[in-house]
Amino acid sequence: MNEESAHYWQHPALPGVDLLRAHYVRHSFGKHTHDGYVLASITAGVEAFHYRGGLEVAPAGSVALVEPDRVHTGHAGVPDGWSYQVLYPSSAQLASVAAELGAAPGSPGFGTAVVHDDELTRLVQQTHRAAEQNQVLAASTFLRLALARAVRQHSSQRLIRSAAGGVLGAATAARDLLVARLEEPPTLEELADAVGARPFPLLRAFRETYGLPPHAWLTQQRVRTARAMLDTGASPADVAVAVGFVDQAHLTRHFRRIMGVPPGAYRRVRKNVQETIGRSPAG
């Protein structure tokens, strides 16, 4: 694939974070810096970049970590170029996550510029995917988990205290809020603020109470609500909008994953069952 492409954007659920999805072959970045951090998941090919006095090589499956105000470049490491998905969080955002995890004061630094971390790769890509699908709770959750993973596993700073803390009743309150805001759920940060908790303790408490993180529980609740609406004869297109999915295709993907059949087929079966019951003679 020799055709270059780039999509640089922001999402309201990720304030202060730039996102880039791109494929470069001939393009090269001259010496430059960023105000914030760079987390770049290489999805194909190889990127090479000069950084901290040496040449770094980032192959597919790796994540490049660049600190604020560090001069670096960027160019193809193989003839076919490279593709990547990039997060550009601000210095304040990463410092906030680090502080919540118990890191020593100051901006986190990374001892290694290119890391091979399947979990971090997955989280960066999930952040992109959720933002592209306008899943605000999932996008904000995956972003925070990606930053936390980077700090925990790759920061050169030592964690000096535990970030654990009790969240009495917060999980239940968060669940009730998600039910009430099924169509327009809050971000993880907004959800935590609303129930008087911090994001990571809330994530732990919610998972322990309901077996899933809030964004995954929200998807299941949406499918559960969609099922009840389909039982009344509502169309899949109307149901998708009513429960907060982006479109019918988005509903279909999650409905089939959880229920085993697409919503249209489910609705037809339920309609046939109800009609059969309606025609049954009284006993």
Rank of each mutant, 00 (worst) to 15 (best):
P89C: 11
S91H: 02
L20A: 13
Q85N: 13
R158S: 15
R207D: 09
A40W: 02
A237N: 03
G196W: 07
R21W: 06
A192V: 06
R279S: 13
G106S: 12
R152G: 03
A240I: 01
L178S: 08
V38S: 03
L145P: 00
A98V: 09
L203M: 07
P281H: 07
Q126K: 01
W9Y: 15
A249K: 04
E4D: 06
A113E: 08
T187S: 09
A6M: 14
G264T: 00
L188M: 07
A22L: 11
E183V: 12
A240C: 03
L39A: 05
L39G: 03
V195H: 06
V63N: 11
S62A: 15
S107M: 07
A6T: 12
H7T: 12
A216S: 11
V223S: 08
A197F: 09
M229Y: 07
V124E: 07
F142E: 13
D117Q: 11
E67C: 10
V167P: 01
D69H: 14
V114K: 14
I258V: 11
Q135G: 03
F255R: 00
F142Y: 15
H154W: 14
H215N: 11
T127H: 10
D117N: 12
V97H: 02
E183W: 00
R26Y: 05
Q133M: 06
L39Y: 08
L19T: 08
A130K: 00
R181I: 05
A197D: 12
T219P: 03
T252E: 07
F245E: 01
L87M: 10
R122N: 05
S156R: 10
A228F: 10
P108F: 13
S140M: 00
V71N: 04
Q125G: 09
G53S: 04
A92E: 15
Y84E: 15
H116E: 15
G30P: 02
K271V: 03
F200M: 09
G244T: 04
G77L: 08
E4A: 04
A228G: 05
A95K: 05
R52A: 15
G166P: 09
D193N: 09
S96Q: 09
L203S: 08
V136I: 07
W82F: 15
G283N: 06
W82P: 11
V57E: 14
V243M: 03
P12Q: 00
P68M: 11
A99V: 05
G36T: 06
R204Y: 09
Y210T: 10
L145G: 00
L65G: 07
A40Q: 06
L145A: 06
A216D: 13
L159I: 14
F200G: 05
L143C: 02
L145M: 05
G111R: 15
V124K: 05
I160W: 02
A58R: 12
T73F: 08
S140T: 04
L251N: 00
Q10Y: 02
N272H: 14
P15Y: 05
A6N: 04
R152N: 07
H215F: 13
H116M: 13
A95C: 04
L191C: 06
L101D: 03
S5F: 15
L168S: 10
D193E: 12
T232K: 13
N134L: 07
A216N: 08
Q93L: 14
